[in-house]
Simulated scan of single mutants.
Amino acid sequence: MLGQYFNWRTLLAIIAIGIVTGTIFYSNYLADKIAVDERLKVEQWVEAGRFLIMAPIDADTKLPSLIRNEQKSIPIIETDEKDSIVSYINIDSSKIANDPGYLASKLKEFKGQNQPIILEISKDPLLINKYYFGHSALLQQVRYYPMVQLFIVALFIIITIFSLQIRNKSTQNQVWAGMAKETAHQLGTPVSSLQGWVEMLKEENAQSQIATEIEKDVQRLRLVSDRFGKIGSTPQLEPNNVVRQVEEMVEYIRKRATGKVHLEVKKNKADMIAAVSPPLFDWVIENLLKNALDAMDGKGNITVDMHEEERTIIIDVTDTGKGIVSQNINRVFKPGFTTKKRGWGLGLSLSKRIIEQYHKGQLYVKHSEPGKGTTFRIVLKK
């Protein structure tokens, strides 16, 4: 059960989450240490100011002056006991000049960030100074660092997955093309041989009926070979009446279906023209109709509904079969997926490739309900 969900993508996500989580905790730890250190620096700065105000004339003020002068990173606003602003340091003066309310907004911001340091000047009357301070640039960078790293890790994962998908898709395309060309090559030899035997049988009048039936099968083999050959290369698209092609394929399947299967074609126009490769397009319709037959176990209704819109031609193939469970709808087009006891699960995968890569259209499951049936939709450009 766990193996179904645990793959390289899951591992990559876990590693990324671990890195980001660890970074967030460590960054918060560093930020807390820096915040404690900055408060201590502000306290020293305030005490140095008190000493400079109250120190005797002959006192050594070199160290307090150094502490006051070297504090250039932490923004501080000094207020009186009524929170009226008295002075400030390390705040952009140009912004204060352009915006009269800027200093008041910074004071409000500092109140939300840190508790003020209070300096009592006298008790009677009560005079105090409050020193509100904000975060230094270093502390802000440390706090925002996890977000930056999260973005970088997410970008790395996206690029990695995208690259792997492109590589896998390229490999898959090469496999499909190689398989198609090899199949066409392997079918070509017996087809040529059978054609020779057909010509010999035709010379004997008594065998003409047998020769006719064999010739039909030979033509069918040639069609299969032609289809696979076109899968391995870029097919030539030509304007064709897809209504006629669909109707011919429905007739072909009707002759091979049981009497309990009813096939119906609906259309809003007699002619609908689209650029298609006839052998490959017929193959898609045949695959969808055969899947519908298999899903109904020999009885039911198959409806092919075609209608033309402003820029597209829509073809819906609907059956009254067993339907597809919801968790399998996104898997039906994957190579190798099949619910049949026989088959390789390539029909729908090849059909999707033909419609979407070669014809620049769409093929998808429009609707499916277990026990009631499925509708596959083809969308072609006019």
Rank of each mutant, 00 (worst) to 15 (best):
F6V: 15
W8F: 13
L12E: 01
I17Q: 10
I17K: 06
G18M: 12
T23N: 09
I24Y: 14
N28Y: 11
A35K: 08
A35S: 11
D37G: 10
R39W: 03
L40F: 09
E43P: 04
W45K: 07
E47L: 14
E47C: 07
A48W: 00
R50G: 10
P56C: 06
D58C: 00
D60I: 07
T61D: 02
I67T: 07
N69F: 05
K72D: 07
P75E: 03
I76D: 00
I77A: 02
E78K: 15
T79P: 01
S84V: 00
I85M: 09
I89M: 12
S93G: 04
I96T: 09
A97G: 04
A97Y: 09
P100S: 01
Y102K: 06
L103M: 08
F110G: 12
K111F: 05
N114V: 04
I117P: 04
I118R: 05
K123C: 10
K123E: 15
L127P: 07
K130F: 04
H135A: 09
S136P: 04
A137W: 00
A137H: 08
L139C: 03
Y144Q: 11
P146H: 00
P146E: 01
P146D: 01
P146N: 02
P146W: 01
L150E: 08
I152D: 08
I152E: 08
V153Q: 09
L164N: 14
W176Q: 15
A177C: 14
G178N: 15
M179S: 14
A180T: 04
K181T: 14
K181L: 15
E182L: 12
A184S: 15
A184P: 10
H185W: 10
G188M: 02
T189V: 10
T189Y: 13
P190V: 13
P190Y: 03
P190H: 03
S192Y: 11
S192R: 07
E199I: 05
E199G: 09
I214H: 05
V218Q: 03
S225F: 01
R227A: 08
G229N: 12
K230V: 03
N240S: 10
V243A: 11
R244A: 12
E247W: 03
V250H: 02
E251F: 09
I253H: 06
R256F: 02
H262D: 06
N268W: 06
N268A: 00
L280M: 13
L288K: 01
K290G: 10
K299I: 00
G300Y: 04
D305H: 01
H307R: 11
T312V: 13
T318G: 05
D319K: 03
T320A: 06
G323N: 08
G323H: 04
V332F: 11
F333Y: 13
W344I: 15
G345R: 07
I354R: 05
I355F: 09
Q357V: 15
Q357T: 15
H359M: 14
K360R: 15
G361Y: 10
Y364E: 08
K366M: 11
K372Q: 10
I378E: 06
L380R: 06
